[in-house]
Every structure is written in C-alpha cells, then in structure tokens.
Design a protein around this nucleic acid. Structure first.
Lengths: 285, 285
DNA sequence: ACGAGACGAAAGTTGAACTTACATGTCATC
DNA sequence: GATGACATGTAAGTTCAACTTTCGTCTCGT
C-alpha cells in the first residue's frame, strides 16, 4: 500500500484542483504536494494527473482514485468528529460515598455550574470503591492514603487531609459530660468494620459498644442530628452541620485522620474532567 | 485531523487484537504502535483501548472508531488494488503510421508475443502525429529528428536512422534506365507535402511530376509492387519487399534520411510499455 | 519457580516529508 | 508585446515525526 501522506496529497489535489491549492489546504508548500503525487503515481504505476501548463486535471484513473479516496477520508474524518463530539458532550460521571456526595459536593454544585454551565454532572454514590474504568466513571472522590499506590490504571490527586470526628447532636451534651461507651453508635452493616477499626485506635473496647443500625446511609447523619447517638464522620463531611450548630464534636483523642483524593482513570481526559477535579480542590480546601 | 499513521496503527491494533500483532503486521516494533495509539487517544481525547495486564481490548469508543477506520482503509486499498490491476492488464495502445504498422511491426508481432504472451497490443495507424496523452496512447513510433525537442509531456527514445528511398517494381526497370520525371509518383493527398519536400531536396522540379493518388495508404505500397509507378518510402519500411525482390530502389541521390523514434508519455509506465519499447529497438536495429 | 510473551517508558536514531530557492510556463491586462 | 500574477517543475538542504533500542514490569502456562 502506498504512503498515506501521498494519498492525502493526491486527495487534496483532486479536491482543490491543483497542487498550490492542495498545499494551502494541507499547510504545506506546493513542492511537497507535487513530490507526493509523483511518488504515488510511480508507486501504483498509473498517471493520475495531466500537467498542462498552469493547470492540472485528473486522468480517468485519477478520477476513480479520487472518488475512492474522497469517500474514505471523508468517512474517517466524519467518524472521528462524531466520536470527539459525543465524547465532549457526554455527561460527567462521578462516583463517591453517599456522605461526600450529599454533604460536601451536592450543596456546592451550583458553584461549579456557575463556572462551567455546559457540563452535565452525574453524582453516583457507591458504597465501595469500584473499578473506574470498567464502570465507565470519569472521576472518583475517595479516602486514599497519600502514600498508598494508586489503583492500577488510575492516577491519584490528593484533595485534603481531614480528621475523623465523633459527632452528636448538641442536646446530648446538655446534661453535662458523659461516657461515650454508654451512648449508642450510629453505624451501618457496611461501615461498621471501618468504624470499629477507628474506635479501636482511639482506645475503645468495641465489643462493649451499643450500635444503632440504619437501613440507608443518608439516614445516619440525620439520625445523629436528631440526637439518636454518636456518629463517626470526617470533618469535611460534617463541617456544614458543625458550623450551623446542628452537630458538635466530642473531645475524643486518638481518632485517626484520613486523606481524601481524586482518582482519575489514566490516559487522555476531556477538559470537563479536569475542570471538575480542580473545582473539587477548592471545595475540599 | 489526527495523524494518518496513528489511525493506521490503531486500525491494525483493532484488527490484530494487540500492539505486538499490529506491529508485526505493519513491520514495526510494538513500541511504535503503542506510541501512535497513545498519541491518537490524546489527540481526540477519548480512551480507545483498555490495557489490562498482558492484553488490550477496545473500549466502546474504540470499537466505533475501528469500524469506521476498517471500512475507510479497506475501501482505499481495494480501490488502489483495482486501479493497479486494471492498469496492468490494460491493452497496450500503440500509434504509428500505416506503413510502419503494416510493413515493419505487424509482420514481426508474433516474435513479441513469444516473449510476452500476456500483453495485448492494439496497433492504431494514425496518419498524423497525435497527442499521446490526450488520446490515451501508451507509445508512438514516429519520424522524429534526433536533435528535435520532444513534444511537451513526452520523452523520445531514438530507434534508428534510415534513408528515404524511391522504390518501384523491378519490371519498370526491365527496359533499361529511364527518367524518373516521366513516371507517375504514387502518393496521397496527405503525404504529398512531405514527398514534395523530399523530392525538391533531391533536385526534382516537383511541379512537373506526374502524380497518382490512391484513396487509402495501404494501397500505395501494393500499387508500387504492381508497377504502377514510383513511391517514396523509408528503407526500414520497404526492406522486406526489397529483400524479396518485389521492389527495387532507384539510384536517386540527394534524398534525405530520417530518424525513427519511440515517443512515450512522461511519467510512470507499466512494465509492458517498456517491454514493447525495447523490443522495437531490436526490430528497427 | 521459571520462561515465554505481552505491554510500558524513555532515550537515541533515521529517513520520509518538508522547505527553500530558482527556473519555467501560461494567462490576463495594460 | 511587455509585464505581473500565479501556476507548476526540479533539486538540494533541513527537520521532526516516527521508529528502534533498551530495559522494566506484568501475566500466564508449565
């Protein structure tokens, strides 16, 4: 098969009716085009253009080839253009935990849309870390230790370092100090192993704790606000409730801190993904 | 539009299910293919292949692009292959004078077919020099002075230098020497200007000559053989008749000589044209 | 545990494609 | 018929995209 740039040079020559015009269209000089077309003619052994004085015209063979090439190149560029456009407009799929989605990102999403109104965002709360690439996500916000290696095929951009707090409704503290061992801990089947690990680090005897289990994660925070018990949560998640006085942090020392990070699939990204990632940095600052 | 070699690299990757296989198909290393595919992904901003361990698979976007590219490249190579083949088998169109065609080439054509049985030859006798390219001829055999410039768009390969003879049937000489001014000259409307010029150079008073005009060129030689008069012809044309004793050359001095040459359109040629041209050299030797 | 065979990354190399420069040829216009 | 604008032809010089090389890593089958 002949060189593709020679084919493109001939295609442009046919389209623009001359070497000079083809050169302009391809951003090269006319000499480059003549060389390529000559090479193509030599390669396939057929005269493709008639050179008569100041103008060139296609031979019958040239006409046939130009037809074929025009369709092929046209199909290519149309296909690529489609792909690029459908990709550009595709909705931005973001996965994170229910808490981060509801408490941290959703309340401030209007700020993002003020910056980039054209980007549609789908926030998909998934309890566990999922395979970004396999599930077709563009971005994840996850707890990810700063020194941990990124999951295969992804890259990690740290967002913030934030302490884990034990929070409850201020009413629970009205009657003075109390022993946290006595109060119920609001948790879930899924979150309990993690909560237990963190409470152990703070010196609690986790086998003696009372637990309140709720069916859906987004009920937990509201249960805490209503004084049902104590909940473990990162500071960044409950910051709005702390500032509004709906929750208070218990003075428990020894609870660890965690790192939040943006996790992105490796490889090429459309601009919308980068926009959202950099906006997240301001949200988690 | 992305680089065509990147598109071809991706096409080959899709076709062969991996970078290594694509590299083998394109006669390059796997590294070259990965680079090109990565560049393509960056260019159009879409992930096209999933790299998982030892194998690669196409993403949905990659599938779509592979489909489009496969059709485009397939169409191209089919079109080129068609062109090349139809050109290869195309009949060889040769133009020359009636005399050369009938007297010199046609009798020996079997020798050419013995060498190249696959080449079909069309001998087209045309009285005047025609535009090779415009009329779609592959080759012409013409009288062309060795030092004359080639017609535009053509190249000239000299064949032989041959004298112009005045010939007649041997019977006309039976009654002893005679004055050529008295005998009729066999000529044609079309050939007369040329004959007159040559006769003038040999010192004849052309206004006093008797002329016999015949309708078709290929009757002239046979009229000469039958003793109707004298004919002007190049030695190479009437050599078979001279050798067979059907014609004799009159001892007229002063007639000029001419050069025969092969005239070819410039540019790429298929092998059959070169074969025929080089065979002609042996015929005219 | 080990070798075969695939992909990944980075630095070095090469030649195809391009530019530059000048000659030539044609056409429109004055 | 002289002139200028604009096309193509050719050849020699230049550059950067594409490729190779090299080494590392991963996965799979034995």
């Amino acid at each position: 098969m002949p060189s593709l740039s020679a084919l493109r040079a001939f295609d442009a020559t046919a389209r623009h009716g001359g070497f000079a015009g083809a050169g302009r269209a391809l951003n090269v000089t006319h000499a480059a085009v003549t060389q390529q077309v000559r090479a193509l003619e030599a390669e396939i052994g057929v005269q493709l253009v008639r050179r008569s004085g100041r103008t060139v015209s296609l031979t019958p063979a040239g006409e046939r080839l130009a037809q074929v090439l025009g369709e092929a190149f046209g199909g290519m560029s149309a296909g690529i253009e489609n792909l690029r456009r459908s990709e550009e407009r595709r909705i931005l799929r973001v996965t994170t935990t229910t808490f981060v989605a509801e408490q941290t990102i959703m309340p401030r999403l209007p700020e993002f849309w003020a910056l980039h109104p054209e980007v549609e965002v789908a926030l998909v709360p998934t309890p566990s870390v999922v395979d970004l690439i396999e599930e077709g996500f563009d971005l994840a916000v996850r707890v990810h230790a700063a020194d941990a290696p990124p999951p295969p095929g992804t890259e990690v951009h740290p967002l913030c370092h934030t302490p884990i707090l034990a929070v409850c409704a201020p009413e629970l503290l009205k009657d003075g100090p109390f022993d946290p061992q006595d109060l119920p801990w609001i948790t879930s089947d899924h979150g309990w192993p993690w909560d237990r690990e963190n409470l152990s680090k703070a010196g609690f005897d986790t086998s003696r704790l009372k637990r309140v289990q709720l069916g859906s994660p987004h009920l937990e925070m509201s249960a805490a606000r209503q004084g049902l018990g104590i909940s473990l949560a990162t500071e960044i998640i409950c910051r709005p409730d702390l500032e509004a006085g709906r929750l208070v942090a218990l003075p428990i020392s020894g609870l660890p801190s965690v790192d939040y990070a943006v996790i992105l699939p490796r490889g090429p990204r459309r601009p919308a993904v980068d926009h959202f990632a950099s906006w997240l940095r301001t949200v988690f600052a």
